[in-house]
């Protein structure tokens, strides 16, 4: 797992090496779970097309969707503030990584470089993703999480999706 391991910083290509046990994923989109009207962020591995759905709250979904669509609000939103805070002292957001899945809860970390040190800060995946998108930092998912993720459950969920569920969310 990449946590605490800073060797890969700045060398994006090397991140795909399987021995590091993390996979870079992109935010493919946001959608509404038709079963309970909650919001889902779809992460997708560009190489394997593997998809990881992560359920998030409405405010965080809105924060992610603003970043995806490149919308900026007249006043800084909470995740914009995070970025301003980091930028103001010349710290750098290196990545967001989804590190664990326990009891149906995903855990994430935000990796920041400041001065000569590196920091891994515990976060919800939703905040980490919203933050990473604004900082244009890569998003990684540990292989462990992908394995733990119950394929059967996703398949069942995907089977129930209708095409019109895509793109149906409010900013």
């Amino acid at each position: 797992m990449g946590q605490g391991n800073v060797k890969w910083i700045g060398r994006k290509g090397s991140l795909f090496k399987k021995n590091l046990m993390i996979t870079q994923m992109k935010v493919r989109g946001l959608m509404i779970d038709p079963h309970n009207s909650s919001y889902v962020v779809l992460l997708q591995c560009e190489e394997s097309q593997e998809v990881l759905p992560i359920w998030v709250g409405k405010p965080e979904a809105s924060a992610i969707s603003c970043a995806l669509e490149g919308l900026s609000s007249p006043r800084p939103m909470t995740h914009d503030l995070m970025k301003t805070l980091v930028d103001s002292v010349d710290a750098k957001v290196l990545s967001a990584s989804i590190t664990d899945l326990r009891n149906n809860t995903y855990y994430a970390k935000v990796h920041i470089a400041y001065g000569n040190s590196f920091f891994a800060i515990d976060s919800r995946p939703s905040d980490a993703i919203a933050f990473a998108l604004r900082a244009e930092a890569p998003i990684f998912v540990s292989e462990d999480v992908i394995q733990k993720h119950d394929d059967e459950e996703v398949d069942r969920w995907l089977e129930n999706l209708k095409p019109e569920d895509f793109g149906k969310y409010e900013v």
Binding site: E60, A63, L81, M82, V86, V110, I121, D122, R124, D127
Partner: peptide
């Protein structure tokens, strides 16, 4: 951690 907790933690 909620969003503002993350802000504090950063």
């Amino acid at each position: 951690p909620a969003s503002h907790d993350l802000l504090r933690d950063i």
